[in-house]
Design a protein around this nucleic acid. Structure first.
Length: 286
DNA sequence: CGAGGTACCTGACAGC
DNA sequence: TGCTGTCAGGTACCTC
């Protein structure tokens, strides 16, 4: 489900409800969901009694900061890291609400509510690490720059693309280059910039790179403004769907008219993923 | 480095 | 109705 805008929306809705709360207990219903530590009891005991001091995001990872039990060493700060992968949901629900199918982990909070991790396809993962020990989480330490931060400059983007012969779509999906883009927002950004997803990065003109740079920031900001894209499973912590699916220009619109030129949108395979584009607005040069 | 495949899982949907 | 194949917002790992 989740790309940067969806994860950002979950983080904002979560922060509102769980920051300041203490974790009273943890129930693990599906052990494979715990990516670290290997020992499940260590995970459970590491969460118990901790107070949630912040909720943040890095790429598509959700980071819940846990402050130690009072009177304990402040060096004991932990981070609960969560990746939703394709179908993960994090729901803030009253403890007495019946749990949904595919509920994998339940954090019991001190106010009669739970934080529940639901995972239809069981791809999602939770990790409990010492604060800052991000090497323990596959991928987290290797993430590239945040595309909506000031670190993402046109120079950085140009420099990371030069000398690369790979298709631009594959590079935009590469989390070690930019953190947080996924299949939907990559297709939307390429459309907005008028670039064919199969274009080799080395063939992009400076003008195209500049347009793409701006488009990336625009589509991600738009996605956040509409609280994400819901196609199937995605909802925020309150269970609310997003609305950006009503504003997509190409993604999942095969056969429908391009919003700019009325040409039917086409679907092809690029970088192993379904890719939607307008054959007229996004011509492949060679 | 780059491309393509597999695997991890479950559910929805199209087609026969 | 029911079976089969394909596809899905992601990532890790493998081979060529």
């Amino acid at each position: 489900m989740p790309e940067l805008p969806e994860v950002e929306t979950v983080v904002r809705s979560l922060d509102k409800y769980i920051t300041g709360r203490t974790i009273k207990g943890v129930r693990i219903l599906e052990e494979r969901i715990i990516g670290y530590p290997e020992n499940i009891d260590t995970f459970v005991e590491g969460c118990r009694g901790k107070t949630i001091s912040a909720v943040s995001r890095r790429g598509k990872y959700i980071i819940i900061s846990l402050a130690p039990v009072k009177g304990h060493d402040p060096a004991e700060m932990k981070e609960l890291v969560i990746h939703l992968r394709m179908t993960g949901q994090l729901l803030y629900q009253p403890s007495d609400v019946e749990e949904l199918p595919h509920t994998c982990v339940i954090l019991k909070l001190d106010n009669g509510f739970d934080l529940r991790f639901i995972n239809i396809r069981k791809f999602g993962r939770m990790y409990l690490i010492d604060e800052g020990d991000r090497e323990k989480v596959g991928g987290l330490a290797k993430l590239g720059i945040e595309p909506l931060s000031g670190d993402f400059t046109l120079d950085y983007f140009k420099q990371r693309l030069t000398g690369r012969k790979a298709r631009i779509k594959a590079l935009l999906l590469d989390q070690s280059l930019l953190a947080g883009m996924g299949n939907i927002y990559v297709d939307e950004a390429l459309f907005k910039a008028g670039i064919n997803p199969k274009t080799r990065a080395s063939q992009l003109t400076p003008e195209e790179i500049s347009r793409l740079y701006n488009s990336i920031k625009e589509v991600l900001s738009e996605g956040i403004r509409y609280r994400g894209t819901t196609r199937r499973d995605y909802v925020d912590a309150e269970g609310r769907a997003g609305e950006y699916q009503d504003h997509l220009r190409v993604y999942s619109r095969e056969g429908e008219k391009c919003t700019e030129c009325q040409t039917p949108i086409e679907r092809i395979k690029v970088a192993g993923r379904s890719s939607f584009y307008c054959p007229r607005c996004q011509k492949l040069k060679r």
